[in-house]
Design a protein around this nucleic acid. Structure first.
Lengths: 173, 173
DNA sequence: GGAGCCATGTAACCCGTTACATGATTAC
DNA sequence: GTAATCATGTAACGGGTTACATGGCTCC
């Protein structure tokens, strides 16, 4: 049940229409919780029905822009969710599965694919580092937006892990 | 579409019944692709209908053990899937989402939860290291089961990443 | 008046999760 | 005979994915 809370968070940061939310999911929040516009509209409908957000604007039908904002009940809901204990989920990665299958089948045409993944992770890491350089320059004292920086660092370190691991996996091939 | 291929891989390693598969998913394969017995039975039914696996054993109804084995078509299917290009999926982690929400809400009761996660990752890392010590002792030359070791190392390094990151996140709190 | 874009939506499908149901076998 | 365990299933629901549909606006 993370998507509704991702949306509530995004709307608290800035009230938006469905499409604007979609774009922001493609950029910032989507780095660790992606969503398509279909998901977002479906969820906004639910959140409105449950009285957690409110839509303003003329539109009722299709093509009419609606702006959503979070109601107090929505903020309370989000706060409760953040406070709940939730266990981390085990890894779920098709690439690891494919390596295991390759171990059984004796397939060895996998180097290309590993190299391709390495390139993708390299690019993603570069993007994160750019964001870090822009939004969290070393001279700025970190107090208020420390949490955002920590989240970004998780992304950076995860991509670094994949890079190092893929190097290692390719080394012996 | 990973679950059917995970099952095919497990069945190639050793023909099994549904329940046996479930147990093995809880242990080895489940470390990076978990599945419940309901999923597995549903998927075994499909795989059989599609002619990718074959069931033997007396049973037709409930409670009758059936043993599944992979047919040539299943092996071919798996081989094809392993060879396909598949992009890595972006991270999808509720904990990062909760940190971001906390940044907006100004919630600060999160240290306990972070510490709890750290403990869980610490335990998981210890488990992986134990498996490594048992199945991949340093003296054994790595040629045949190198792929399995690489997969395990991914698990080890991922857990190490989480540990280090959580330390870092807790440090400034 | 058509192309392109902004914007909101519907429909269908598969996967993962949870709860529950039922049959066979063994131990006491 | 009944409790526990092995074993196979059904039903219902929600989230994620993909494809498609529709309405309004602007620019040329």
């Amino acid at each position: 049940m993370s998507l509704p809370h991702a949306i509530l968070t995004a709307l608290l940061e800035k009230p938006s229409s469905g499409l604007e939310l979609t774009r922001r999911f493609d950029r910032s929040i989507g780095f660790f919780w992606s969503a398509t516009h279909q998901q977002i509209y479906r969820e906004l409908g639910r959140l409105e029905r449950e009285g957690l957000v409110r839509a303003s604007g003329p539109g009722v039908g299709r093509g009419q822009r609606k702006e959503y904002e979070v109601l107090p009940a929505g903020r309370a809901q989000l706060r409760e969710w953040v406070g709940q204990a939730q266990d981390p989920k085990p890894i779920r990665d098709p690439l690891l599965l494919r390596l295991r299958a390759a171990a059984v089948l004796g397939v060895d045409g996998l180097e290309e694919e590993l190299a391709r993944h390495r390139e993708l992770h390299r690019a993603q890491l570069a993007e994160y580092l750019e964001i870090e350089a822009r939004d969290f320059p070393p001279e700025r004292a970190e107090t208020e937006n420390r949490l955002q920086h920590v989240v970004l660092q998780a992304g950076i370190q995860l991509e670094s892990f994949w890079l190092a691991w893929l190097d290692q996996a390719l080394e012996g091939t």
